[in-house]
């Protein structure tokens, strides 16, 4: 199996702080790779470097075998990298449908140029995440869980080949989490490779093929989901602290 995404020694320094420190990993085509780690571990920073909103201080990043260093965020979107934001970034003054239509109009391969077709596809994406009844509302009128769904629909509308999900389940209740897990399963079934960042262990367990763990910006463990989650270092760094 070849890698759709490969990081080689990816590093990000903010002044004195090393947020991500020499992280290397591979995300295989078609797999769901889980990324866990305590708050401040550097997960979002890593996603920012992959999606192109932050430039790494050092290291290289290969998407489908080619280096994307220096490639701006919008070009990475055209290449097929889609993401959601932990701190959501909807277009507040636009309708829910328009929010998603932007992804359809500008996403992978530069997007769909025809407005009608883009809107139809956006509507399909909204229906797939259960927002079909909200398309005419303004995005800033949505409640928290619906905003998370909107964030997911916007990324899906781009027809990405790689999807980066940064805590899409934070703040959702059990029923909603189950729904989103189902949504993500369906996305993977379309052949989209996924990086899932999640604190919800149930989601990581049921979705991930493999998991890697960041702690203080460094990758401390990587491997099969069950084996990583029972690793003493992970329990120490992350799970143990949460249980108390």
């Amino acid at each position: 199996m070849d890698a759709i995404l490969e990081a080689r020694g990816l590093t990000k320094r903010f002044h004195g702080l090393v947020a991500v420190n020499g992280v290397s990993f591979q995300l295989r085509r078609g797999e769901i790779l889980g990324l866990i780690g305590p708050n401040g571990a550097g997960k979002t920073t890593l996603v920012n470097m992959v999606s192109g909103t932050l430039a790494p201080t050092a290291g290289d990043l290969l998407f489908e075998g080619r280096s994307v260093r220096g490639v701006p965020a919008y070009r990475r979107a055209h290449l097929g990298i889609g993401r959601t934001f932990q701190v959501m970034k909807p277009f507040p003054g636009m309708s829910v449908l328009e929010n998603v239509a932007v992804g359809a109009l500008f996403g992978a391969n530069g997007g769909e140029r025809n407005l009608e077709r883009a809107r139809a596809w956006a509507r399909a994406c909204l229906e797939s995440v259960g927002l079909g009844k909200r398309i005419a509302q303004r995005a800033d009128a949505l409640g928290g869980p619906d905003r998370k769904r909107l964030e997911l629909a916007r990324a899906l509308a781009m027809k990405p080949r790689l999807l980066l999900l940064d805590e899409v389940m934070a703040g959702l209740n059990h029923v909603e989490i189950e729904e989103v897990i189902e949504d993500i399963r369906r996305v993977r079934a379309q052949g989209i490779s996924i990086l899932v960042i999640e604190h919800v262990m149930k989601a990581i367990k049921s979705l991930s093929d493999r998991v890697f763990v960041l702690h203080h910006g460094e990758k401390i463990v990587e491997g099969g989901t069950a084996e990583v989650l029972s690793d003493p270092r992970v329990v120490e760094a992350y799970l143990g602290r949460q249980r108390r």
Binding site: G52, A73, F91, G93, M94, E98
Partner: peptide, 16 residues
């Protein structure tokens, strides 16, 4: 409009 509403979001969704 996407740029006006959220420039970083627009860029990540493919707007040059």
């Amino acid at each position: 409009i996407a740029i006006r509403e959220n420039e970083e979001g627009a860029a990540v969704m493919g707007v040059n």
